[in-house]
């Protein structure tokens, strides 16, 4: 009987109400589980802790990668701004933390970026880069500039022109400017200009309504600028190579060919032989000499450009002035061309 009495008491206990008292902790529930634990160290994932702050070089490369591959446009813009400030504030003689030859290929694709602020910042940054390193990357840069020039968005087209101008100024000190002599640099870029200005269509006869829409829509504001850059470009391509002629005169008659015997001063000096690349067509060909460029220009673009200039001059104003400049450049450049192919 005793055990049964005990059981009865136990059962009763379940239904008794626990007494709560002030100042005492509440009784734990029956099914309470203790989840606290002890550990010597806690490791939190994805956190890099170091005692020293990152070096400026490391930070530079971090922001460079951020600028080139971040998905958010504000992040790209800020990263570019950071890079710009870093480069501009460094002492003059100190080299860049990362050489320009590494920076350029990473950033050039931003020329086609959808955000205007990113592109503006990029142009600022490009302007700060030392001009000596740029000429080696002229071909890559031209690829993106051409893509920008034919872009559907007008803003990108405008910025591409600015970039081209930057490229021309920074490489103009070289003999034989790589912008016009690299593969595809001359003909393809001129083609882009033609489509941009709407002069390409003049090859085939069309009705007068479709002619030169460029000056009517909102690209019209850009028209003078386009003409100016084109003039710049043509001057780079067709201008008499003064440095070269001085070079020749410095040596005597016997050393006329001396230049070819010396170590080449440009990278990839035999690129025009195209030993390892794929076959190039007329557009992609390298036009190394001024005469080559003149010949191609005369054959393909001369008529369209002259017609275009006529039309631009008729518009007068800023466009007319730019047209006049272009005409002068053209005249100078083609002055000694005899016209025989």
């Amino acid at each position: 009987m005793g055990s049964s009495m005990k059981k009865k008491r136990d059962k009763k206990k379940d239904f008794q109400k626990p007494k709560l008292r002030l100042g005492k902790a509440k009784a734990k529930a029956d099914n309470f589980t203790d989840t606290s634990f002890k550990a010597k160290a806690i490791i939190v994932n994805q956190q890099s802790l170091s005692t020293s702050a990152p070096s400026s070089a490391l930070q530079f490369s971090h922001f460079l990668s951020l600028a080139s591959s971040s998905k958010s446009e504000t992040q790209r813009r800020d990263a570019l701004a950071y890079l710009t400030s870093q480069i501009s504030t460094k002492p003059v003689n100190e080299p860049l933390p990362i050489p320009a030859t590494v920076i350029l290929p990473k950033l050039l694709s931003l020329l086609l970026d959808g955000s205007t602020s990113v592109r503006t910042n990029l142009l600022k940054l490009l302007a700060l880069l030392p001009s000596g390193d740029i000429s080696a990357h002229a071909e890559t840069a031209l690829l993106y500039i051409r893509a920008g020039m034919t872009h559907l968005a007008a803003d990108i087209r405008r910025d591409a022109l600015l970039a081209l101008e930057w490229l021309l100024t920074s490489t103009s000190s070289n003999t034989n400017d790589p912008v016009v002599s690299c593969p595809g640099g001359w003909v393809k870029t001129l083609n882009c200009f033609m489509t941009m200005l709407g002069w390409a269509a003049s090859k085939e006869p069309t009705s007068w309504t479709s002619a030169s829409k460029a000056s009517f829509d909102k690209t019209g504001k850009m028209f003078p600028q386009q003409l100016t850059v084109l003039a710049h470009f043509i001057r780079a391509g067709l201008e008499e190579d003064q440095t070269g002629s001085i070079h020749y005169s410095g040596f005597g008659f016997f050393q006329l060919e001396n230049r070819h015997m010396m170590m080449p001063s440009v990278p990839n000096a035999f690129a025009h032989l195209n030993l390892f690349g794929r076959c190039r067509d007329e557009e992609g060909e390298m036009y190394v000499d001024r005469e080559d460029r003149q010949r191609v220009f005369h054959r393909v673009f001369m008529d369209a450009v002259e017609k275009g200039i006529e039309r631009a001059k008729k518009e007068a104003g800023e466009a007319g002035r730019a047209g006049a400049v272009l005409q002068k450049v053209l005249h100078d450049g083609m002055a000694d061309f005899d016209g025989s192919d």
Binding site: L143, A147, M196
Partner: peptide, 27 residues
């Protein structure tokens, strides 16, 4: 013709390094 030119230039960029993704622009 402008867009076709754009296609051509994009193609040039693509052929310069085919394995990278060149879709960072709008188009």
């Amino acid at each position: 013709s402008q867009q076709y030119r754009q296609y051509q230039t994009q193609r040039d960029i693509f052929l310069a390094n085919p394995n990278t993704d060149a879709t960072n622009g709008i188009v």
